[in-house]
Design a binder for these strands. Sequence first.
DNA 1: TGTTAATATATGATTAATCAGATATAAGAC
DNA 2: GTCTTATATCTGATTAATCATATATTAACA
Lengths: 180, 180
Amino acid sequence: MSLAYVILGLLQQQERTGYDLKSECFDDCIAHLWPADLAQIYRTLDKIEVQGWITCTVEVQYDRPNRKVYRITPTGEEELNQWLRTHQPLPIWREPLLVQLYFAAQLPNEAIIRLLEQEMEARRKKLDECKAHDINSSNDPKVSREEFLQQLVLELVTRREQTYLDWLDEAIEIVRIQPE
Amino acid sequence: MSLAYVILGLLQQQERTGYDLKSECFDDCIAHLWPADLAQIYRTLDKIEVQGWITCTVEVQYDRPNRKVYRITPTGEEELNQWLRTHQPLPIWREPLLVQLYFAAQLPNEAIIRLLEQEMEARRKKLDECKAHDINSSNDPKVSREEFLQQLVLELVTRREQTYLDWLDEAIEIVRIQPE
DNA sequence: TGTTAATATATGATTAATCAGATATAAGAC
DNA sequence: GTCTTATATCTGATTAATCATATATTAACA
């Protein structure tokens, strides 16, 4: 379960509450990497606390709800480090558009093109959002190693979206000249 | 739920049992498009039969278990046609490797490279499997329209895998020269 | 003055997918 | 002669993710 390791990774950076994780990380840069809602975050925190990978201390607040601050334990750090080194099975991709195209012979060209154009619009929007999450560069060598790796990830994501967009462009042109 | 529409599309091609769907389609060309196991196939058949999108007749066999043969209904064809024309929300991709890379600053270069190499091996294998599923070409214009669209799908899948492999190649080279 | 957003945690329900097995017969391999 | 594979259907259990909602206070907005 990768979400547990995403959370471990984030708690290794600094101690956080579930709410912090959501608003600082999962709503921000992690959104494109491993989206998760609060329900899932809270339940995963419970689970890995039981496993002893994190500990929790309650910060009492009087003007707002109390905060449950989580910290990674040595066991958690070891667990994370091991996972980071271990090859994970390839994720399975299921794409509705490809299914639609696969069975689209019964549609007129114009309907197929509309589908492709809508996909293009959605993907362009997503690529822009992704590129907007620019990584600020630092001179601290420890921080710059992190940034370098994050840049690598961003590079793949944008490159792959671009490949998709190029294909969509060509696909639309080819469908346009198909006999019906 | 796209699986229901995959099954509708396959039943529109020809009538089939759940077992046929698995062995002829989901184990073959659909494997890379929308993998599904028998449990899921049978349960989805039940569900869309109740909805009236397919009907079932039992073929009694004496030397083997009876066959429940499913056929698409006019309601089912209309439902499929509508779905095929309707833009579906972009699927969400969660990739363990990207999470690993994102938090990999604590690993030595050599461990990161091992991770990338293992991913490369797995992706190469998958690309080869995909390419092996070659589409036989026909002269029947109705069949060739189907093949053309399936070719388009295959083209995207292979192109995207190639993009991934190229990135992996470059990533390995860059990590190799990173100061630790 | 009333409504919404922000802060903070949590549970319940449902879906989609996966994993494991139960049932039963016949054909083919070793 | 035994074991495995193919044929065929189906249920049970579990996981991961999503959606909706409950609770409670404060601050900002219109």
